[in-house]
Computed example of a mutant assay.
Amino acid sequence: MNLINQPIKINQYTIKNRIIMPPLVCFNWADTDGFETIDRAEHYGKRAKGGTGLIIVEASAISEEARIVREEVGLWKDEHIPQFERIAKRCHDEESVVIVQLVHAGKAAIGNPVYSSSRIELEKKECLEMPLEMIKQVKKDFVSAAIRAKKAGLDGVEIHGAHGYLLSQFTSKEVNKRTDLYGGSLDRRIQLSLEIVKEVRDAVGDDFIICYRLGVNDPSSEEDKYFAKKLEASGVDVLNVSAGIGANDIEVPDDFPFNKIVYMGTVIHDVVSIPVACVNGIREPEQAEYLLENNLTDLVAVGRGLLADPEWTNKAINGLPINKCYHCKPRCKYLIDGRDCPRYSELS
């Protein structure tokens, strides 16, 4: 048995191997009311059938105002539950564990004005400091979306605290200039994330996975370690380590064979006891095996590799060649519409 194929326990669930499909937004695959227009059960079901142990469904909005783009799947009302029920059933039929990422985009959200941890100068829309009453509502929205995810039969949720979205805007001292209980010291800047984790846990119970998408170098690598330990203590079951607002300033040792985001994942792995996933630019089975062999991470998130080849995990486990991502230039065509990806037409 290679290390990719070793099972791992997260909460009450046994993940059959170490490969995760990270949350990858399917742009233009939903309408403006949060409903899918392209079958997500088929999309994620293919990757589950291809052997992937843990599927994280793409960023799903906790409210209409929280959306990253207008055509984004939602979990802000009960009518959204059936589309996630279909995803859950399809993935469970293939013995994959499946959770959904919950997001509030903050200053990156649609609409005008938008709200962030602090007032921010934007070119095309006004960004205001989020008042306390709105923060209370955001917490309620995360909890309500998590409850809907559980009703849909999903195995957990991932709370999005990376990529410069709302929770990342609160943890970052570059963005957060508040003077109240959510600003100033590190403990205050991370308070909102910890409150959301606690309130979600109280609402969904102990047997539901809570993953946190941790944005690294928000505000520094040393403070990331502190925050990671706090998240573990608050009830988070697994950390999915990705880019934060200050990620460009990370220094990587010369002998480390991966990029700065993967490196910070390995740093976080060393300071917590819960499972940690590394992500970003990991496309080859040999890369995943290297990270696991050297005890640098517990789980490996393979993004574009799984878009290019739904059978990536089974092929990696069995030593078979994978269909490689074409690395389209000047940018990934999937970021416009998944159907534009050259691999999509090959797989249809």
Rank of each mutant, 00 (worst) to 15 (best):
R47T: 10
V175N: 05
A61H: 04
F27I: 10
N17C: 11
Q101L: 08
T14K: 10
C127R: 00
G34T: 09
A288T: 04
E94Q: 15
I147K: 09
D31Q: 10
E123N: 11
L192E: 07
I317D: 00
R201F: 07
I87Y: 05
G156D: 11
S221L: 12
K329A: 10
F27Y: 14
A105V: 08
K107D: 02
E85G: 07
L292M: 11
E284C: 00
Y115H: 10
C127A: 13
D78E: 15
Y344L: 00
C332S: 08
D33Q: 14
K229N: 12
N11G: 15
L347E: 09
P131E: 07
K107Y: 12
Q83S: 07
T32M: 07
F208G: 05
P82L: 13
Y290C: 07
T171H: 08
F227D: 06
P342L: 07
M21P: 03
E223S: 10
I268R: 00
L128P: 05
R339N: 09
M134W: 02
P285N: 09
Q12M: 08
E58F: 05
M21E: 09
S185T: 15
Q137V: 10
K107P: 01
I19V: 15
N318Y: 12
D224R: 03
C325R: 02
N2H: 07
V100G: 04
V272L: 07
H163C: 08
I322V: 15
I8T: 08
E232H: 12
K125G: 11
I4S: 02
S220R: 03
D237E: 11
G106V: 05
L194I: 15
N323E: 12
E223V: 04
M1T: 09
P131R: 02
N259H: 11
R18Q: 12
L154E: 00
K173D: 15
P253W: 09
K124E: 14
K173P: 02
W312L: 01
E71G: 06
V276I: 13
E251I: 14
L75N: 02
R178Q: 14
G111S: 09
K89V: 02
D298L: 07
G281D: 14
Y344I: 01
L194W: 06
R18F: 11
G338W: 00
H43W: 14
P342M: 08
E129H: 03
H92R: 12
E284R: 03
G153M: 10
I135M: 08
A145F: 05
P257D: 14
A109G: 12
R178L: 13
R67K: 15
K151S: 13
I196Q: 03
D237Y: 04
D255K: 08
V69D: 04
S221C: 13
F208Q: 07
K173Y: 11
V157I: 14
T179A: 13
E79I: 08
K177R: 14
G53D: 04
Y165L: 09
R331K: 11
K225D: 05
P23I: 05
D309Q: 03
